[in-house]
Design a protein around this nucleic acid. Structure first.
Lengths: 213, 213
DNA sequence: ATATGGATACTGACCATTCAGTCATTATGG
DNA sequence: CCATAATGACTGAATGGTCAGTATCCATAT
């Protein structure tokens, strides 16, 4: 009927089929994390990715498929790298732990860090994703910390702890929580500036002192 | 036209205006926690509370008002009781901490414990609720732990820690995380049975050993 | 006691909106 | 000029919110 009013500064339609899927996935992750899955409209995802409403459906069958793709993609690579680190490290275990925490911090502060919040919030609505996460990310993450603990204890660098498995979880929990925190309450907490340096400093201090023989 | 088919075992319409609001709020909390706010239909809340679709709107102006009411109600009382405990306690600080963790456990394992997950997930969509939570629950919760730490250090029962404020947060994080955990991933984690005794045991062991002078 | 009527707790059909998903059409590159 | 990347108006289903009507309670009168 009528020529659609052309927006002045939009570069117009461009064809970049290879870049589209990751672009859309990244935009989706951000919005899912900040607003939640159900509260995020695919139209907003499309706008954030700079494409039209229909395009995401050319790359992802449905909103739910997009969700799963986003999670799986965000989880996979960082986990592999962390495993490599622990297995190939050979120095003081204290330094290994520092290094591992550093790696986690990179992950947590990248956009990918949002998956933790996302998973925790949506596990109930996506049981299969939850199970995937548990066996592939969570379990292995715990095993990573447990491995570090065992290494430290075996080398006489850490005191023996009663329950290694559970202690590994206790090590991981503040890290995970901090990542969630940054993306939920931190922006609204006036009494506590989101000072990650301070957090990781206190964390390492507390944990390493607590583990000394 | 036609007499509505009377369900056999429903007690029929009953009038209990005083009980309604809490009943609806409790049902809402449960569903908000398990499914998320946006994914929960008010019709389901009504059904879970055993009332008709329209009734919640007689007690709460809108879905959003219901959300806020649920949060505020769930947060208020447990916090007051915890404060009383810390202020009135006079024994070994280690025992105070054990007691405090015990109190938290009660809260975390009651239906109210779900608010933590709920807040973390929805803070971005309800900034004013997030701010309320920060100043009234979170800040005071941190202060509670900080107070305990200072007490222990002053009495020579705990070693001095570098950053008391942040250490208080580190103490609280595993507790909060465990509460979230129970309501999100725990049901899907086959490798880790949700054994709260074990968790709290390891937590107290780890923390108290780590704090010894 | 029993009847009457007015107040109000409650219901569920209905309306208006929002949004996931579709598709006819248009732009682009080779 | 063909193949296909991309668009955005459209649709159908779902759901937040409304409201006219119904059931129940209770105060008062008979």
């Amino acid at each position: 009927m009528e020529a659609p009013p052309r927006p002045t500064e939009l570069p117009g339609r461009i064809r970049r089929p290879e870049d589209r899927a990751p672009e859309i996935a990244r935009a989706a992750l951000d919005l899912f994390v900040t607003k939640g899955f159900a509260a995020t409209k695919l139209e907003d995802v499309a706008r954030a990715a700079g494409v039209s409403k229909g395009l995401p459906y050319l790359y992802f069958k449905s909103k739910e498929e997009l969700f799963k793709a986003v999670i799986v993609e965000a989880i996979g690579e960082p986990l592999i790298r962390a495993n490599e680190l622990v297995d190939s490290f050979d120095g003081a275990t204290e330094d290994l732990l520092r290094e591992l925490v550093m790696k986690f911090r990179e992950f947590a502060e990248s956009p990918l860090g949002g998956v933790i919040k996302l998973i925790l919030a949506e596990a109930g609505n996506f049981p299969d994703v939850a199970r995937f996460y548990c066996s592939n990310f969570d379990r292995r993450g715990r095993d990573l910390f447990a491995k570090v603990l065992r290494r430290g204890i075996a080398r006489g660098e850490f005191r023996p702890v009663a329950d290694i498995e559970m202690s590994a979880i206790l090590l991981a929990q503040p890290l995970a929580m901090h990542s969630v925190w940054l993306r939920s309450l931190a922006p609204y907490d006036e009494s506590l500036p989101a000072d990650s340096d301070r957090f990781y400093g206190a964390y390492l201090d507390f944990v390493l002192k607590g583990l000394r023989p």
